Simulated assay, not measured.
Amino acid sequence: MLASVDSTNAEGFRQAPHLAGPAWIMAAEQTAGRGRRARPWVSPRGNFYATFVMQSHEAPAQIALRSFVAALALHDALCQVTGSTRGLALKWPNDVLLGGGKVAGILLECQAAGQGLQTLAIGIGVNLIAHPPAELVEPGATLPVSVLSESGQRVSPEAFLAKLAPAFAAREAQFSAGGFAPIRAEWLSHAARLGEPIRARTGTQDRHGTFSTIDGSGNLILHMSDGPVSIPAAEVFF
């Protein structure tokens, strides 16, 4: 556990050349935590900030599927610490919901390490005891919650990592052995708003339709009035 760091993903990339194998890097505090699209991630002490660092010769498209692996591992760990699956759901592309609010997020980043090798950093933030105030959230976005506020369970970052690390190892083994198909099927079984109307924002374009499924590449399939559309990256609003 690092006392303080700018971001665990940044620290992961700094440490990667010196690591003997995959590793978790956790910090009590981030001074420049980041979410998707370089948004700041509010990082008070008591919440969970960690990055899983690994190296891979896989193609970028295959590496990117580990955001779904991480989401399932988070779901598994949160089930254990809350004692229930009630209220837990996975929001495409990389959030975990508890009681309808955002309790955790995933940031997957890659850097070339030479000779076809990629360093992968899977950053995970979990609101264990605190969450940002609603006024800091973009209008229409999912409001944040914490494990404590929704379940009444007070969990330390160290205790959460003790659940998450083996859960991730098990899901990684499942992915390595069986590919994306079983990960996709199980992710869909926990998907938020599957079969319901959603809005997907890509850049400045908003698309409205029914969340139909995700395909074999992890793309969102949105069924619109003129047929299905495959969306590789977007912000999703309910």
Rank of each mutant, 00 (worst) to 15 (best):
W187K: 05
I129W: 13
I25L: 11
I214N: 04
E235R: 00
L97K: 04
T31I: 02
A159F: 14
A104H: 04
L222W: 06
G178C: 14
G203V: 09
S217A: 10
F238V: 15
D6F: 04
I221W: 09
A177M: 11
E235Q: 08
A234S: 11
G114D: 05
I221D: 02
A159R: 10
L148K: 04
E11M: 11
P197Q: 07
E150R: 11
A70T: 15
W92T: 07
R34A: 06
N47K: 01
G179P: 15
R36L: 06
T204G: 00
A169C: 13
P133E: 00
Q205N: 02
F211E: 01
G100I: 03
T119C: 12
I25M: 07
R154W: 00
R207C: 02
S189Y: 02
A121P: 08
G227I: 01
N127H: 07
G178H: 14
W41S: 15
A121Q: 12
Q111I: 11
Q174S: 13
W24A: 14
P60K: 00
L19T: 05
L117I: 00
H223A: 10
V103H: 06
A71D: 13
R37H: 13
G114H: 01
G195T: 01
Q118M: 01
Y49P: 00
V81D: 02
V236H: 14
P144S: 06
E196W: 02
F175W: 12
L108N: 03
G178P: 00
Q174Y: 15
Q62V: 10
N47W: 09
A173E: 13
R184T: 02
Q15R: 08
T213G: 06
E109K: 05
A59F: 05
N94T: 14
E158F: 05
P144H: 06
H223K: 13
I198M: 05
G100Y: 13
P40F: 00
G216E: 08
Y49D: 02
I106P: 15
L65D: 08
P17S: 04
E109P: 05
E58R: 15
E172N: 14
